[in-house]
Nucleic acid binder design. Structure first.
Length: 629
DNA sequence: TGAGGCAGCCAC
DNA sequence: AAACGTGGCTGCCTCA
């Protein structure tokens, strides 16, 4: 048996590489011992890449470890090796993974007889626990959320970055950080040692984090809730979403052509790369254009805010008619947009396809400082919504229709409930449109569209922490008008004003941390205490959506779920029952939050996600379900 | 080659 | 007194 010894935080550890039949039997005996002792066992997998859904993806090793000893099982070597690892995964009662959804999906796909669902009741996730202790990255003053950062923060500052440490090893065999994982010899000493170390670190983190959770008084119900949410999200990842491959290839071609065409126009004005701000600035200046906007570092800005007016276009890219459009500004805008849509959306969708034409974006159920979720690879929560062409690429399954259910003004309602703000709560209870209602209270019954716009901007400002200047910039209204309206707003909605003040005052006395009703602690930056309201509101709205996911799953609707998008659930159902399922999802999601009703809007589209963003005529021309009907 | 900052833009 | 929040992703550019 090959053994590697290594010191972690001053104590000796040993990592064993189980290759022979005798090694494996010794491993099985070890599993029996630790199972009986019911100690937490850190676990991890090494794989050929991160794309667990890809056709040629393989798991290479499975590792298990206590705080001092680890076993690396090279499951790629034989069915017997796989069998021993599977047996351990099937029977150990207390497994600790760092980012369990990933390893859970790897095991679900690659280890015979072990499913995500069978594993989950016995899994604890150190990433979840760490986020609940402190959600901040290292550079924000937190412990970080990765295994490396957490180990450095909580266990041993000199613990190696095991992934980074292997890159040099990869280079020796002429591979890169991406291709090395599949190519490196499974017996490579550094590879084995680091594989074992990750399991040991996970086991040690578990112990540290349990103490910290208790120290910070984080409710165990919240910890369990997050594990449940993570499973539901992992199940959505496993299900994935069907891609209309032919449509997407055509879309990509269209975008490539558009990018080339517009770039060629830009090149005629001396701009070789439309993505190089310096070139664009120089060329526009040469054409006699003058503007004052600058970036944070003081350089001239050539973002949309500058280019659209120069091209005589409004925010919806419609002609204003105020000036002669600058052809370079127009070309740069179009080339950048099509280029970005091509690479970030169309390309990434095609690249992420599995053998069945589905894509499996990574849903991080616990991501932002506020615990908001994110979706990556591709970033499906950022697909353009003003233009349906990108979302059209994503499809419900054969014979299914797409469903979207979202909450109505959830952040405003959460804020009203938490404050509590009786005037606003009353308006919500009476089914009033909140921005109309506010405009009416501020400006009287005869309020104009411009008045409503200001009222709406102030509402967002309250949720985001924006002030007079921001609201002026957004609405184009005069400073005095906005300042007056803000004062009125604070007078009318006294509860919100007081709540915001109270949160900030308390945070200053309480270590610059605010708590959400769910018991989550949200650290504040000392120079941005005003963000307290936004943090609590955003985080609570996130908790509402996650509660909805749990409720939907509990109501037997889990199989329909495709994606969570902040205040919205995207789902699918067989065409003949789709409307009913949508209504049922809406009913389950509707809930009371501190006595305030959170209402939902349920929509049923056609086959494509994009159909939910089309009008009737467009649906009939561009969505397969309506085309067939 | 890779990392990281910057600028820009997509969403809620 | 005033303070716009949370993410992902791409391309350019500089630096090691």
């Amino acid at each position: 048996m090959i053994e590697y010894r290594y010191r972690v935080a001053g104590t000796e550890t040993v990592t064993r590489f189980a290759e022979s039949r005798e090694d494996l039997d010794e491993f099985a005996a070890w599993v029996d011992r630790v199972r009986a002792a019911r100690v937490p066992i850190g676990a991890d997998t090494e794989t050929t890449g991160l794309d667990w859904y890809a056709p040629h993806f393989r798991v290479r090793t499975v590792q298990f470890g206590t705080e001092t000893e680890a076993w690396v099982i090279p499951v790629e070597l034989s069915d017997a090796h796989m069998h021993y690892a599977a047996e351990a995964l099937r029977t150990l009662p207390y497994l600790v993974f760092h980012n369990a959804p990933y390893d859970g999906l790897v095991i679900d796909r690659c280890v015979p007889g072990v499913t995500l669902e069978s594993l989950w009741p016995r899994i604890r996730d150190t990433r979840i626990r760490a986020h609940l202790v402190d959600p901040r990255m290292r550079h924000e003053g937190g412990m970080g959320l990765g295994l490396k950062d957490l180990s450095a923060s909580l266990i041993d500052p000199s613990a190696p970055d095991t992934a980074a440490g292997l890159y040099a090893e990869f280079r020796k065999i002429k591979k890169t950080k991406n291709t090395g994982w599949a190519a490196i010899d499974v017996r490579n000493p550094l590879y084995v040692q680091y594989a074992g170390l990750d399991a040991i670190l996970a086991a040690r983190l578990e112990a540290k984090l349990i103490t910290l959770l208790r120290f910070h008084d984080i409710p165990s119900t919240l910890v369990q809730f997050e594990h449940r949410v993570a499973l539901i999200c992992a199940q959505m990842m496993r299900r994935g979403m069907l891609l209309d491959e032919e449509y997407t290839r055509n879309l990509k071609r269209r975008l490539t052509a558009e990018t080339a065409e517009q770039s060629a126009i830009a090149a005629r004005y001396g701009v070789e790369s439309v993505n190089a701000p310096k070139q664009v600035v120089e060329a526009l200046r040469g054409m006699g254009e003058v503007w004052t906007e600058t970036t944070d570092t003081g350089n001239p800005s050539v973002g949309k805010d500058v280019l659209l007016p120069l091209a005589d276009l409004d925010r919806d890219w419609r002609r204003i008619g105020a000036r002669t459009p600058n052809p370079l500004a127009d070309a740069v805008l179009r080339a950048k947009r099509s280029g970005k849509w091509e690479s970030a959306y169309a390309d990434n969708m095609l690249k992420g396809m599995d053998a069945f034409g589905r894509i499996h974006p990574n849903i991080n159920s616990l991501q932002a400082r506020t615990a908001r979720m994110s979706i990556t690879g591709p970033a499906l929560q950022t697909l353009p919504s003003g233009d349906w062409s990108i979302r059209r690429a994503m499809m419900a399954d054969e014979g299914h229709r797409m469903i979207s259910v979202d909450y109505a003004a959830v952040e405003m309602r959460v804020l009203a409930a938490l404050a509590p703000e009786p005037v606003m709560i009353d308006a919500i209870a009476n089914g009033r449109d909140l921005h109309d209602y506010t405009a009416e209270l501020v400006y009287g019954k005869g309020f104009t569209k411009a008045h409503r716009k200001i009222a709406k901007a102030i509402g967002f400002g309250k949720v985001y922490g924006g002030g007079v200047a921001t609201i002026c910039r957004q609405t184009g209204a005069p400073r005095d008008d906005v300042a007056n309206a803000l004062r009125e707003y604070d007078r009318i909605y006294r509860g919100i004003y007081r709540y915001s003040r109270r949160l900030q005052d308390r945070a200053r006395w309480d270590g610059y941390v605010v708590r959400t009703p769910s018991g989550r602690r949200l650290p504040l930056d000392r120079d941005r205490v005003y963000a307290a309201t936004n943090y609590v509101v955003q985080s609570s709205a996130r908790d509402v959506l996650c509660q909805a996911l749990v409720d939907l799953d509990g109501a037997g609707l889990g199989e329909h779920l495709l994606l969570p998008v902040h205040d919205e659930v995207v789902a699918q159902a067989p065409a003949d029952v789709a409307e009913d399922v949508a209504a049922e999802i809406g009913r389950v999601m509707s809930m009371q939050f501190y006595g305030v009703p959170l209402a939902t809007d349920a929509e049923t589209g056609g086959r494509s996600w994009g159909s939910l963003y089309m009008d009737e005529a467009t649906r009939r021309a561009h969505d397969p379900f309506y085309l067939a009907a």
